[in-house]
Design a protein around this nucleic acid. Sequence first.
DNA 1: ACGTTGAGATTGCCG
DNA 2: CGGCAATGTCAACGT
Lengths: 219, 219
Amino acid sequence: MRLVIATCTVDYAGRLAAHLPRAKRLLLVKADGSISIHADGGAYKPLNWMSPPCTLRMEEGRWVVTNAKGETLTIELHEVHGELSHELGPDPGLQKDGVEAHLQELLAANPHVLEPGLALLRREHPTDIGPVDLLCRDAEGRTVAVEIKRRGEIDGVEQLARYLERLELDGRLRPVRGILAAQLVKPQARTLAAARGIAWVEVDYDELRGVGTGRLTLF
Amino acid sequence: MRLVIATCTVDYAGRLAAHLPRAKRLLLVKADGSISIHADGGAYKPLNWMSPPCTLRMEEGRWVVTNAKGETLTIELHEVHGELSHELGPDPGLQKDGVEAHLQELLAANPHVLEPGLALLRREHPTDIGPVDLLCRDAEGRTVAVEIKRRGEIDGVEQLARYLERLELDGRLRPVRGILAAQLVKPQARTLAAARGIAWVEVDYDELRGVGTGRLTLF
DNA sequence: ACGTTGAGATTGCCG
DNA sequence: CGGCAATGTCAACGT
């Protein structure tokens, strides 16, 4: 990894054309061959960048980066104010917890959280337009399709509505109800769900994780 | 802007939970208060970050970043290998020349891409309500007004329709047809264009760039 | 203020 | 290997 603080101008010609006027910036060259140009703002996003695979040609006061698609990034280095290089080695990588897949696992293990008496029939139940996240049976023996999202929005409701249509065609499952489960269900999604006769449930992830580990039953 | 190369472990608790095992990484603190943690891979994307507004508390060997939503990023600094600080000042920012201008150049050079036999008469042909992007002549000698957009939407169709009205007033140009050219023409724009008797063409930007640099004619 | 839409997105998954 | 969807998406724009 090589870090250079420099006064520079930058031109990018690729999927769009962009230009950075002369100013002091950070040039960050990683071992993977990528290069990114950062200002002292704009949070984590660079002003401009080139993703690997690309080739960096360093001439006198001028870096030219190109890739296979013919995109080019040209950096004119007018003055270098600081520099730092260091080999970091491979990174063990980020361990994530709390994404949709995890939510689905937890709800599959605890469908009763969505509604008392709800029991899991199948996860990722296939239909010809895609898999239904959870297929369940309710306390009265009716089939329930559950669509799980981190955020419940309109398209989630429509996706579930399409699944319900397909499932209704199966005489063994009919009648089929739907539940949209999400950490947050947006107002528009609530309204549309109501209009479609679809129920929605907001799920508290931390609480659900507690259920999963038996914490709620311990205290 | 402050750059620190350090062996560290990182924990994020917020919208999800994430953990970074001990490894050497770049810590990038910007003047806007943001902090991002980079490995020597993953292109321009940091492993983890906190966006402003947030507060960074630097204790002995431990940075704790929090924001108003109660999200926290905790960085344990085990060893510091290098450091570099520099004030960059405000950045003039990115100038996107936009695809539209570039598209116009490319289509002006290759009008036949829109329709076989189409030939350019004039770019930015002036009317009293504004310039028409391209004025062309088709294979049968008729005048064709071309409106170029990155995204073809309803307002693009209406703009072109207004130009056509004006151009029809000029006896030397009459009759005049219209073509809406865009990378993507939305369904509503297609419908309105059809109703107005205006043709539309979706243009492949990358392919056109190939034509423009003569790459397609070389092989 | 809120909702909608685009982005040079990137990344992982599954067919 | 290509298309689809999620992302701690974010950011800009219109209502």
